[in-house]
């Protein structure tokens, strides 16, 4: 029974982490975007505008949760949860500190890649049940994009698995050496780009495409259900950054004990900021460019990385 209670506690903790990450993430993103636009960003509400997002959150929770008349009601209400749960689950296998991952499983690396991709089912259902052209197109784009970018992303992580000789994230971390950053440089680039695509951030935001599809698959949502989609997006950014900072950049391996964990968080924040930088710098891709990037550029790059690792491993 203790495992069950433990799971419950970790589930709540993970949910809180995502909620907090969203609140701070939105604030941080608005600050960074402000600097890129040569503005200051939020500053009026609270110190450095810190209370702006909690105020917005309160507004969002109190907002009416509208279910349009023509939608498939039950599927429409279910969809946000199907989007959210897999992303929250993916946080469980991340090696947060030496010897500590909430779910220490022998297939953790594969788990992290396989489970978050399930949220695309929720996106498709949201797009379908809204009975709305924008939402349907958004859902279709989400599916095409997620399936395409899963391949280079998985291949890029595979090279780390080959180097470490294990799929248990904690064992990968124990085996991690600083020279892996150089050996895995191409793989890390592939992972970073395809992660941006997996979290539907600009320049890969075709499924949402504010200026053409309004908000894509969640165009018809409002209030807290819209908020769940928003939280999922930030949760996915945080999860991808945590995982990348751990298995590619070494996370807490650089420094002993608690200092390592602090460094791990700092590296994660660095990756999140990098994703925000990319988001506010590049224009949206065309759908054919999107597919070309996945299949003709990233996948061969990941394969080259795999060959490099394959040559290195026998000499280790």
């Amino acid at each position: 029974m203790s495992g069950f209670v433990g799971g419950l506690v970790w589930g709540l903790a993970g949910g809180m982490l995502i909620a907090l990450a969203t609140v701070f993430g939105v604030w941080w993103e608005r600050k960074v975007a402000g600097r890129i636009h040569m503005r200051i960003g939020p500053q009026t509400t609270g110190p450095a505008g810190l209370l702006q997002v909690p105020a917005d959150t309160l507004k969002m929770i109190l907002k009416e949760d509208i279910t349009p008349a023509q939608v498939d009601v039950r599927v429409f209400r279910l969809a946000p949860h199907i989007v959210f749960v897999p992303v929250a689950m993916s946080l469980t296998v991340i090696p947060f500190a030496s010897g500590f991952a909430p779910l220490n499983t022998s297939i953790g690396m594969l788990f992290f890649l396989a489970v978050p991709s399930l949220s695309v089912i929720g996106m498709l259902l949201a797009g379908w049940s809204s009975r709305n052209t924008y939402a349907t197109i958004g859902g279709l784009r989400a599916a095409a994009q997620m399936i395409s970018y899963e391949l280079p992303r998985t291949l890029s992580v595979l090279s780390v698995v080959v180097l470490a000789g294990s799929m248990r994230p904690l064992e990968v971390m124990e085996a991690w050496r600083p020279w892996w950053i150089l050996a895995n440089a191409i793989g890390f680039l592939v992972y970073f780009i395809s992660s941006i695509a997996e979290v539907n951030s600009i320049p890969f935001d075709l499924p949402q495409a504010e200026s053409e599809l309004v908000a894509g698959y969640f165009a018809d949502y409002s209030g807290i259900r819209w908020g769940i989609f928003m939280m999922t997006e930030y949760g996915a950014v945080v999860a991808a950054s945590l995982f990348g900072a751990a298995v590619f950049l070494g996370g807490w391996r650089w420094l002993p004990g608690a200092f390592g964990v602090v460094l791990f968080i700092a590296l994660t924040l660095l990756l999140i900021t990098a994703i925000i930088f990319v988001k506010w710098t590049f224009p949206r891709m065309r759908s054919d460019q999107l597919m070309t990037t996945a299949w003709k550029i990233l996948t061969p790059m990941a394969l080259v990385q795999l060959v490099i690792v394959g040559v290195i491993v026998p000499w280790m």
Partner: peptide, 17 residues
Amino acid sequence: VFVYVGGVLVLILFAIM
């Protein structure tokens, strides 16, 4: 999960859309 739910099922849904 990876192949059947994340891949095949998504493709089926994709076709249905």
